[in-house]
Every structure is written in C-alpha cells, then in structure tokens.
Nucleic acid binder design. Sequence first.
DNA 1: AAGTGTATTGTTATACTATATCAATCAGCA
DNA 2: TGCTGATTGATATAGTATAACAATACACTT
Lengths: 172, 172
Amino acid sequence: MKRAATRGTRKGSFDRPQHDHARCIADALQSASMVCAAQGVRLTEQRRRVLELVWQSHRPIGAYEILDQLTDGSGRRAAPPTVYRALDFLLAHGLIHRVESRNAFIGCSHPGTEHVVEIMLCTDCGRAAEIDDQRIDRAVRAAAAEIGFRIERQTIEIDGRCGHCQARPAHA
Amino acid sequence: MKRAATRGTRKGSFDRPQHDHARCIADALQSASMVCAAQGVRLTEQRRRVLELVWQSHRPIGAYEILDQLTDGSGRRAAPPTVYRALDFLLAHGLIHRVESRNAFIGCSHPGTEHVVEIMLCTDCGRAAEIDDQRIDRAVRAAAAEIGFRIERQTIEIDGRCGHCQARPAHA
DNA sequence: AAGTGTATTGTTATACTATATCAATCAGCA
DNA sequence: TGCTGATTGATATAGTATAACAATACACTT
C-alpha cells in the first residue's frame, strides 16, 4: 500500500501539470480500499464516489461542488447531509484533508500513515500539494513545548505560487 | 507603540487567566489608534467598537457574535455587512487576525509590526495566543524553497491545551 | 459657508457552508 | 427469518459571508 500511495501524487511537491492523473485517482481509490479493509470499515459506493470526486483534480473542492456532481443515477441531486456524511467518514479515516482556509477538501497523498498535514496552495493554478516536512513539525513542537502547550492538531496551510506557475506567465 | 503593544498580551504565550484584561483592551485600542494615524486611515467609531468587541476576551469571536452586540445606541442591531466591513478594515491594517479553522477573529498582539501569524488555540479554555516563532517560519520557508514555492501567506493554527488548563481539571 | 468628490455606513436581498432530526433502507449475523 | 446497528434519504434550519445600491458623513476647495 505504501507503494500505491506514493506512485501517484508524490508528497512534498506539485505534480507536473501534464502528469498521468488517471493514475492518481486509481491509486487513491485502491489505497482507500485497503485502508478501509485494514480498519474494518466499509468504503460504500457513496463514499467511493465522493472520494473519486475529491480526487478529480489536485484543486481543493467544496462540499457543494461535490454535491452538484453527485447524482443518483437518474440525475437526481443528493442532499447536503449525504455529501457531508461521506466527507466526515473520509476525514475520520484519513483519506482526505480539510483545507480550512478554503472550506474545501483534498485527497490525502499518503493515507494509512501517521503524518502531520502541511499543505501548500497555489494561488495561480489553484492546486494543492501536501508536504510532510519534519523541520516544520519539529519547530512547531518546540515552540509549543516552550510555553507548555500540548498539541492536539495542526492546521498548516501556505498560500503562494508553485514552481510550475512561476515558470510561465500568470494564469489567464 | 512597541511598548504599548507588549504591555498587554505578551506574544508567544497565554496570559494568566486572572491577568488585567482591561489593560489588554486599552492597549489594543491605543495601538490601533496609532497604527491608523501612521497609515493615514480613519479608525471610525464603528471600527473602534468592533475592535473593542474582538478584544473583549482572548477567545476568537465570530462575526455574528459581534453583530449581536453591536447595537446602534437605540438598541437596533446592525446588519452583517456593517460588521464584515469593519472586520475587513481591521484585517487589512493588521489590527486583527482571522482564525480560519474557526471562522472567527482575534485581536493582533503586536499590530504595526511585520510578522508571520502563528496561533495556538486552547481547546479547553477556548483562548488563543499569537506566537511569533522564527524557527517555524524558517522551517516553512526552507520547505517552500526546496520545491520552488513562493510564499504569499501562511496560515498556521495549532489546537491543543494550554499550560494553565493542563494545571487544573478539564473545563466544566 | 457652500459645493464637491470620496469614504463610510445603511439596507435589503441573497449566496454559500454546515448540521439537526427523524424516517427509510441496507448489511451482517444469531 | 428476524434482529441490530450502520448507512442513506429527506426536510428543515442554522451559521457564515457578500452583492448591490442608497444614504450619509467627512475632508477639502473655493
């Protein structure tokens, strides 16, 4: 599973715009399947479809964008709780992350492993990259320890311009 | 002004619960006044009142909580744009910070100075402390530099339990 | 003091994000 | 089969934020 998790989006960097994204999606779904099996929980069709929609691009996606694309076969649109429940499940099992500064969600780049979540967000192409930098984590832990603060959760989101976008004119 | 900014809430730590909070408020208003004068913008009565409400505690406050307390003298409640405009102004001039993970706002602990914003949030007493740790900033910059990412903004919010709360039973 | 242009505030409507609640259905198992 | 708990459906509503345009206040000139 570790192989599967790292075959697609590599943690710590932005994929080339022309990478094989179908593989990112396939890998994510496969990893999710394994993670759920390992944790003894069910990756239902509904949850799988939501995860697939989250992974349709590397851009954070909002709950209502998912909702708009989540028809029940006969074109009937789902209701908000449907999508939020699926998102809650995926969050709880580490398959997606919430981007707080955007009220949106991205697929987790290395599900099934313990890691702090640090996200870089390109303000040009809109894509997100999950990084996993030990130095940042160590620095945060050190700062917390100094004032006797016991960390429970970290929200680290960095906005800026990714390398690919800097290498070309600003987005239209 | 630097003295005023550091007299109240010290950056980098949680105040003792029984600190002289009236002074925090007074200092914040005074600093704001000076910052606005220096920047050639007007700290109107409306904006001053919103800032005061933000500073009524060290807990992040939501826009609608402010709204509920913002009467126009005759008890008439203001409308949302009124408070959001004031908040936008205060954000733009570095007098408050937005807490993304809470959709809420806190007063800036050292307005008028350039700094990255790193916030610790106690899940027990609900208070926030703005820290300004160079190690975290350096680590983030290093990680970004490695993948050619140009930083524009950082959102760093750490949830956990503050020292004061750890020193006593969990909050009722 | 009156006039003028800009900034600020008021007002109404509406968009966007998220959850509570209860009913219906489904999956796994005694 | 029938029970039990998990999942989904459906409706209503809470919570967060902005668009658009009118009215007012302020600073500055004449």
